[in-house]
Design a protein around this nucleic acid. Structure first.
Lengths: 259, 259
DNA sequence: TAGTGGTCTAGACCACCTG
DNA sequence: AGGTGGTCTAGACCACTAC
């Protein structure tokens, strides 16, 4: 029976793999449990079934199940208490619903919410990188970079001012492409995905350029994200500085220590 | 030999466990590899030894080693490439070295850097919570909360303005305690540890109170962190608003998608 | 004492990258 | 084709919580 079990699971993965949808078992189980939490099938403050029960239900080993649970923990949906159980966390205070996850690219969030994100191109050219840019993008001084300045709009409303640098060697760009989502383009064209990023965040007073572009008073507070983006192969492919209107954008971050 | 191996590892854990230092094997290995990376024994851009080699070196199973590697990945120190190896990430651009991790309590960071963090108490009292506070702390309207306003100083320099709310039921506080680290006190007194937190961050113009306390001009940009802190049992035990001087504090966050 | 989650093992097979 | 990381398994033992 166990052998049978192993076989069936592997077959299952293979089928998925060679078919259209590809997913690992622990991701499927994670998604399934997540749905059950979000639909209140598992209620906030209450315990999930035990790990043994869940492993049994999904016909997977406990180790695999733990991997699923671990994803839920990282997402802040549940927490485990040794000797006691795994509990659904109380729903967070969602305030105005206008919070953006700080650990996701901004574009992703808004697309998911069916809001229309557009861009007005302010500047587009290629040039050689400065010392600082060479360091951030891990490239040499003779490798040209695209420089892009865009005003991003959500449903037509001014939202953020983005200054982006990308090595030309990553993929050819043109005005039409940068009108939309660069990430989408890079995903299909260069098979390149954002998998890691370092973000430096701070508040600053708007300089004249940012103020006029965003339509706010000079010196009004801006929220700034400086991001270096890495693809699945560990290559830095983008360095960007995004400035958001202070009293208009709030970001949320779930922090999990230990473990 | 394998049985011997299992035995020795378990003994090892037991000894540590009943002795003074307690640590899991995967944490030890994680720390060891991390040290080797930080000391440039494993160099940026290069591959680590293979997982098999490392597992062998530390005399642990590959699964346990993978757990160690996973911690390093989460920390942004390495990245793994299937079929190729595990590579040390290029050191991030550390700028002025004044970056604070956004996913750690601020106090922890500075203590680790041997910098002296002190507090000037501006306000300390207890009262009943507002509706919003009840929601954030998951308490009822008749459960009193402490309200604390502190100016935090690093090496005597004005650093942040913190407004903290904590249910009285968590642990008794007094002026002496809140002079230092509340978390340290809660850890020893109430056996309570911060394990999770939700942080909402944004930029705002300083109001008069914040401006005068932090010694900046009114309307100058502040970086604000609104935090709800949860203990290891999933209980919200603190709600705080921290305001940092804009051009003085930058925060860093490593983002990892997928996996 | 019983039950639950945490850590760890040895081993198998697969996907992916590089020659 | 060989090597490397990714996923998954069955099973053992320990730590912690609650009754």
């Amino acid at each position: 029976m166990y052998t049978n079990n192993i076989f069936s699971v592997n077959m299952y993965i293979q089928i998925l793999n060679k078919g259209f949808i590809f997913m690992f078992r622990y991701r499927e189980v994670y998604s399934d449990i997540k749905r059950d939490i979000l639909t209140n099938h598992y209620r906030a403050g209450h315990a999930l079934p035990t790990q043994d029960e869940l492993a049994n239900k999904y016909d997977i080993s406990r180790i695999t199940l733990k991997k699923s649970i671990h994803l839920l923990e990282e997402e802040g949906l549940v927490f485990s208490k040794q000797g006691s159980g795994t509990f659904v966390r109380q729903r967070m205070n969602n305030q105005s619903g206008e919070l953006l996850p700080l650990d996701l690219p901004v574009g992703v969030t808004y697309s998911h919410r069916d809001q229309k994100i557009t861009s007005k191109i302010l500047y587009f050219d290629a040039r050689l990188p400065s010392k600082e840019e060479q360091k951030n993008l891990q490239i040499k001084g003779n490798e040209p970079v695209y420089e892009i300045k865009r005003l991003r709009l959500i449903n037509g409303e001014k939202y953020s001012f983005e200054h982006t640098l990308m090595p030309v060697s990553i993929a050819p760009l043109d005005e039409k492409i940068i009108q939309g989502s660069i990430y989408d383009y890079l995903g299909s064209k260069a098979k390149l995905q954002l998998t890691d990023a370092q973000r430096i965040v701070y508040a600053e007073a708007a300089d004249e350029e940012a103020a006029s572009i965003l339509g706010v008073k000079a010196a009004s507070p801006l929220f700034v994200i400086k991001q270096t983006a890495y693809d699945q192969r560990g290559r830095a492919f983008e360095y960007s500085i995004s400035k958001f209107i202070g009293d208009q954008s709030q970001f949320v971050l779930d922090v999990h220590l230990n473990k």
